[in-house]
Write a protein that binds this DNA or RNA. Structure first.
Length: 426
DNA sequence: AACCCCATCAACCGCTTAAAG
DNA sequence: GCTTTAAGCGGTTGATGGGGT
């Protein structure tokens, strides 16, 4: 495979970026877009490799990034997505507007992992640690048994060496003596996702070799919500819809009549067009970069205190519509590769769709309920205040409960993203 | 004050994948 | 179909700062 030619060039700066470099990069991308990243350093007058410029932009300078600490909702969402997606940080990040895969990965490795372990959950498998330890012991026992049996078999084989082909050839003593299993395919992943989803509440022992077995029901079910989390409960009991948008429509109306006051139903997120004369104020970006909210003094997007996902979309629209940028907002550009790992890629079975949406539904339910109840991942932090706008609120819990529509919006956004992703590949 | 330890996070590295030639 | 290039992704590293001794 080819290496970045720029990586071989000498005299390229490495390490932390200076404010001057940031400004150069911002200025360049503001005026011309990034185009081909390998040409950016030269055109922008930077002694950096194009890859480095790209990373700096994506992870730090991009105006639609949401800086600051992660809210509890975001953390819980990351945990739940990780249970399904594993270490696919970019896909997890796609569900959290304004967050980068790098940021999420760092958070996972530095904080969430630890928290999960403290709560007795294995961060890799999302199973209780005790169960994992038991499995480890069982595995160790099996291995030692295997060794003993092998030794015995070997001894027996030696003693019968003159005999015809060993019985062990035809009847392997232990599973592990078979050839290694092929690597998991997408179908495998899908199957395990679905089966784990079913088995987690169906009394069957979950599959142990699939990291994402901990189902959304387990994660999310709250008996006090009045929502059925029974595995056989379909999200759309009367639905024959196979199209995600139809299903979401139905979902919205059903949710509206059941417990949500109102949920906006459009599949597409709102996009506010800004005046063509609007331009990016580099200082505004820097202010934002230093902790201020982008747009508070520059582009006239909205007030600085509300950086909701909608606003992020708006700023993305701004850059797209303004014709300055060639980059697209997160979640809008999906690679084909993403489709490959999508749990429902190529899946036309309504049942699986329903299951996946059910998972999403429960995921959203979790988000909605987090203000009112702690799921198994949550720390008991009655005083917790979420610093991230859009997903957060400083209201007391009792008041948060009275504002389901906000949580519903968040959930609907998640659901819509999942649906849009599916629609793209169906 | 000096040192050590640890957590955090920006950045790098190496690999895979997709697209272009 | 092969090679090269560019982009994207995930794992890892290293600088930095805070807290403890």
């Amino acid at each position: 495979m080819g290496r970045h030619s720029c990586c071989y060039k000498q005299k390229l700066r490495k390490g932390l970026w200076s404010p001057e470099e940031d400004e150069k990069l911002i200025n360049h991308i503001t005026k011309f877009g990034h185009g081909c990243w390998s040409s950016v350093p030269k055109l922008a007058g930077l002694q950096r490799c194009g890859k480095s410029c790209r990373l700096r932009w994506i992870n730090y300078l991009r105006p639609d990034l949401k800086r600051g600490t992660f809210s509890q909702q975001e953390e819980n969402l990351i945990i739940e997505l990780h249970a399904v997606l594993g270490n696919r940080w970019s896909q997890i990040a796609a569900q959290l507007p304004g967050r980068t895969d790098n940021e999420i990965k760092n958070l996972w490795n530095s904080s969430i992992k630890k928290k999960l372990r403290q709560r007795g959950i294995d961060p890799n498998t999302h199973k209780p640690l005790s169960e994992v330890q038991n499995e480890d012991k069982a595995l160790a026992a099996a291995v030692s048994k295997n060794s003993a049996e092998r030794a015995a078999a070997s001894e027996a084989e030696n003693s019968n060496s003159k005999a015809s082909s060993s019985a062990a050839d035809h009847y392997p003593l232990v599973e592990s003596s078979r050839p290694p299993a092929p690597p998991p395919t997408h179908e495998f992943f899908l199957e395990r996702f679905v089966s784990s989803h079913e088995s987690s509440t169906g009394g069957c022992r979950p599959n142990s070799d699939f990291p994402g077995y901990l189902s959304f029901q387990q994660l999310s079910y709250r008996p006090d919500t009045g929502l059925s989390a029974h595995p056989n409960t379909t999200l759309f009991p009367n639905s024959n819809s196979s199209r995600p948008s139809d299903m979401i429509s139905e979902f919205n109306s059903s949710m509206t009549t059941s417990f949500l006051p109102s949920i906006p139903s459009p599949i597409l997120k709102p996009s506010i067009s800004l005046p063509p004369s609007t331009s990016l104020d580099v200082n505004a970006v820097h202010n934002w970069n230093n902790g201020s909210t982008f747009g508070s003094n520059g582009g006239g997007s909205s007030n600085g205190s509300s950086s909701s996902s909608t606003e992020l979309q708006n700023s993305a629209s701004f850059f797209e519509n303004g014709g300055c940028f060639s980059w697209a907002p997160m979640n809008c550009v999906k690679s084909k590769k993403e489709a490959e790992v999508h749990p429902l890629e190529g899946e036309t079975d309504d049942n699986k769709w329903s299951e996946y949406l059910q998972a999403s539904f429960l995921l959203g339910t979790t988000i909605q309920n987090q203000a009112a109840a702690q799921d198994i991942y949550s720390e008991t932090k009655p005083e917790a205040q979420f610093s991230t706008d859009g997903l957060s609120t400083n209201l007391p819990r009792s008041q948060q409960q009275q504002q389901p529509s906000e949580a519903a919006d968040i959930y609907t956004n998640h659901l819509q993203r999942l649906a849009a992703t599916y629609e793209q590949f169906s």
